[in-house]
Nucleic acid binder design. Structure first.
Lengths: 335, 335
DNA sequence: TTGAAAGCGCTAACAG
DNA sequence: CTGTTAGCGCTTTCAA
């Protein structure tokens, strides 16, 4: 494992020049740069990140903070962020909050965030005021994906708009009895997303003069099994809705399975719509509002990278696109 | 951001003593240790990983190499590995091969593996001989999860046994016309897993005197959409099987959706079994062979940690448990 | 355009 | 049990 000294010796220049040449800094003659690059390649030299970090204060690494790995949205965002980071020569650290190991409280004092990462990308997390203050004190660029957090840079779909698109589709088909399976008070989850979708569901319903009874809301916790259970209850209730708006595709799958178990035909007896356009949604034939979490992760990465480069970053809230995708789980209500 | 010097000054000892005290090394008086710990806590001191790495050669970080983030198995393994790593004070680096950014070829010369990680945990990857050689040359502990790779330490279920459990269940119910939806030649996938399951499917069938026609095999690539497509073909074929053995639960879901689309009742018209016990399988009512990838990830982490600690690690192949879970998608064939 | 030299913050002998 | 002394491998002024 050769060091910068080997390269310097091999190419007959100083270590300082090697450093400059390899990092593409100016004030290096083309000829010298070439010689140095050749030497580095020859010796298989790769700069030690630890040494660079120690002397420069830059780690070329960003921390990805995720509430858990089990949800499609998160893994997609991670993949998207990781992609552009790697392209820019940055490494991605994983910080998974799902594990009890490191309590959420101590997260922000963790060495990683303090001394191993130049920036942080946090997914769908609703920080407490304390945590936010701590983050700011780190003076580290931070961007949150999926879920607006006041005062923090954010990338994500406009939840109101996405929900409205879904609801309007249902309403446009003639539905009025629309239930909602949503997330709620998940620990580590950004429940503002769930809240926004739920609120907008009510709003659209109110617009057509409908006040949903409590039985039309089920807490699915953004997980399929839980959503299925909730849907089972909603659909077995006395006042069965003609359609269900699920807060995510994963929860919509749960609704679909619940309907199947109850012998309800979709979309004849029940319409179902979700939000996401999960990679399995097409196979399920699910009507949904598409978003692109991978692009969102990439956008977040680009933002923190820009900040690190000292480039000006425009707004605080970056809205990602969303788009209605009509498939087979929605239709006009039966008579 | 205080340094070791601040702590030393604050507690009236040398930096060497601070280092020893905080790392729990012997030869520090209890009293001194306490003073130092108090000082560190007071100052919010956390050792700089870069500096420690530079002087000790240890990074306290391990690289997690995954073919992609979109598959349940991988994310579970990552979560399991990350959990024990974090508990032991190690950080996890993510190296996602799904992204074109860094071609697979150059992966192993990447700085991460060379100069940022003390060990590598690779998921379901079938290394080429070249890659294996390179890895060994790094002199870094390596463990592969899910898919035996000759000459490399491995954690995973016994694919033959798991497949046999699934097939014997079907055969025990009276099925003889059993199709298989499996993975095949996925780039970056460990196709030895797919091959083992496919081979064993044939073996069990041969045992009961059945030679499956080519139309009874469909390539599902370990992905739901692809598996559904393959299943559609298999089930529409002239010689429709009475049961399908899917190489993973995700593929089994695809088979279930295909059956739904074709109007086939499960399990009356078609039995379906998978391997995994995916977190959604219970909701689908899927009969399957359970494995615990999170535990496997944890086991792999513990192994590399032991190796790093210089502890002896027993065998090369560590078989994880698997267990038949009977639910609602399997039944005796109709007449 | 290039080099010399002084660290970055920690660990690891080696003394004491 | 504790302190001193060298570095680890880079980056970065400051000179030349």
């Amino acid at each position: 494992m050769s060091s910068i000294h080997d390269v310097a010796r091999y190419s007959g220049v100083s270590t300082a020049t090697v450093s400059r040449a390899l990092r593409g800094l100016p004030n290096v003659s083309p000829r010298t740069r070439q010689v140095v690059q050749a030497a580095a390649a020859e010796l298989g030299y790769v700069a030690s990140p630890s040494a660079s970090a120690l002397s420069s204060g830059r780690h070329r690494a960003v921390a990805l903070v995720v509430p858990s790995m089990g949800r499609w949205f998160y893994t997609e965002v991670v993949e998207g962020a990781d992609g552009v980071l790697r392209t820019e020569g940055y490494d991605a650290f994983l910080i998974n909050l799902a594990l009890g190991a490191e309590g959420r409280g101590r997260l922000f004092s963790h060495s990683l965030l303090r001394k191993r990462a130049d920036a942080v990308i946090a997914l769908g997390i609703d920080f407490t005021p304390d945590e936010r203050r701590e983050l700011r004190s780190l003076a580290v660029p931070l961007t949150v994906v999926g879920g607006a957090v006041p005062g923090v840079r954010t990338v994500g779909v406009d939840d109101l708009q996405a929900t409205e698109a879904a609801m309007e589709h249902l309403v446009g088909l003639g539905h009025r009895r629309i239930a909602h399976i949503g997330g709620e008070n998940e620990h580590g989850m950004d429940y503002t997303v769930a809240q926004a979708r739920r609120r907008e569901w009510r709003t659209v319903l109110a617009r057509i003069g409908v006040t949903p009874p409590p039985a039309w809301f089920g807490s699915g916790g953004f997980l399929l099994p839980q959503a299925k259970r909730a849907a089972l209850e909603v659909l077995r209730g006395p006042d069965r809705p003609s359609a269900v708006f699920a807060g995510s595709d994963e929860m919509a799958f749960g609704v679909l399975l619940a309907a199947r178990d109850l012998g309800l035909r979709v979309p004849e007896d029940l319409s179902v719509i979700g939000i996401d356009d999960h990679s399995w949604s097409e196979s399920f034939g699910l009507t949904t509002v598409r978003q692109d979490p991978q692009a969102q992760g990439g956008a977040a990465a680009r933002i923190v990278l820009d900040e690190l480069a000292g480039l000006p970053v425009h707004g605080l809230v970056h809205h990602a696109a969303s788009e209605l995708v009509i498939r087979g789980t929605t239709a006009p209500p039966a008579a």
